[in-house]
Write a protein that binds this DNA or RNA. Sequence first.
DNA 1: CGCCGTATTGACAATCCTCAAGTAAGGTGG
DNA 2: CCACCTTACTTGAGGATTGTCAATACGGCG
Lengths: 258, 258
Amino acid sequence: MKPQIINNSEGRSLQKRTIACEVCPLRSLPVFRSFTPEELKFVTEFKIGEISLTTGQTLLQDGQSSPYLFTLLSGWMFRYKSMADGRRQILNFALPGDFVGMQSAAFKEMQHAVEALTDVRLCVFPREKLWSLYSTQPGLGFDLTWLVSREERMLDDHLLSVGRRTALERMAYFVMLLHRRAKELALLVNGALELPITQQHVADTLGLSIVHTNKTLRKLYDRDIISWKQRTLAVLNEKELANIARYERVAPQLRPLI
Amino acid sequence: MKPQIINNSEGRSLQKRTIACEVCPLRSLPVFRSFTPEELKFVTEFKIGEISLTTGQTLLQDGQSSPYLFTLLSGWMFRYKSMADGRRQILNFALPGDFVGMQSAAFKEMQHAVEALTDVRLCVFPREKLWSLYSTQPGLGFDLTWLVSREERMLDDHLLSVGRRTALERMAYFVMLLHRRAKELALLVNGALELPITQQHVADTLGLSIVHTNKTLRKLYDRDIISWKQRTLAVLNEKELANIARYERVAPQLRPLI
DNA sequence: CGCCGTATTGACAATCCTCAAGTAAGGTGG
DNA sequence: CCACCTTACTTGAGGATTGTCAATACGGCG
């Protein structure tokens, strides 16, 4: 079925749902907690459509506000801030199931931008229905707080990396984390991951120059710890990688999928 | 009135309230939004007491969980992560009115610690009443999400600093921000701020060594942009400080005080 | 085949770190 | 009140890490 266009503000098209929330393929992944029928019903009504972006398109722009919230259905995105002279810091990557845009709902203006790394598809929720979410589904209200807390925790980890780890440690930690997150979402193919990012993205994530990023990656290649060719990443020696990263495993916790 | 001790788990004492929420001196500051009578009533009942810590005491420890949430009433605290070999990254500073401990409510284990920089006093809320907050006061539920989003935004800024600003820019940004936050809370005396932190704290915040922190501060002294003696910080040339920091002013927004 | 974005590498420079040796300031006990 | 102790701050020297510049290679695509 070709999705029907019901709106095309901002040059992109808001489309009718293609998949019912109840049978959302993400929902069956073991990382997501199960929802009650009422919760599912609410989410289904909360959702007003879907939107697709192609690689490189911007979902949310720095300095602007947005009347929508999103859940990433498929593809990769990243959240970043940039400075007037062009320096850029990538804050986080969004993978399927991640909730995007809470900051635009909480504040008048976004203080960062969100861009698609691949072609992506997102669920769209209207900000004005947030009130009914909090008032009729307190559990989902808590879930939103929880999801933002999870983001905060990822930022804490990231900040520790950039502030206190060496380039090699940072790189190892970063690769480790992406690999773990992709694994949770069943995105690995034969243990390898198709990574839609360039070394420039890695540099901007880790606070390094692109040249040093390249040389640091090389150290991990040369020691046969990872391989990363043709946009495909494989972890060859997870133990050593965790060792270098000084990675501390955290007990995973089920998370909501809104 | 001497506060009566009603509990002393964890070696610290939970005390009866000394101030009613309705007349909390923080609440009259113009940065906090006004609460409805029902909201105030709820918060008053949500609060089960107060707690005092002295300089250097730990409120929440890495790896542990806590049945309480807190609002900082007076004094300064800081949130940090540390690595096994002693490296430490300060994630944020908490000032009066800041909500502390949401991560411990959302997750089984804290992934950071929170320590007092001065003698502090905090309101104590029980985690198990969070459910009644979300179910009977949806507006306050949203406020909690909002407060976590605000924390996230501060981390975004911090990460941009540590990842992409030079040492001098970072320092200027840091001083600028603390000065602004203190000003909002009417903590300035003749435009100057009593800062209860050492250069080691600054170093661990900005991801620098203590020596380089010292030399970077010196550049700001030598150019008569700031002065910082006897634990007292004054901004002498705010324009130039903002300039160096590449500070971008953000429209301030009223925030809830729970 | 040639173009363009990305990755790679070497040479050199700047930033930032470590080490070491102080000085200053505040608290404590005689 | 002063001697002593501890913590914090300061400064210089030298070294390690990371950045910049520039040249080249690679790979997909029109």
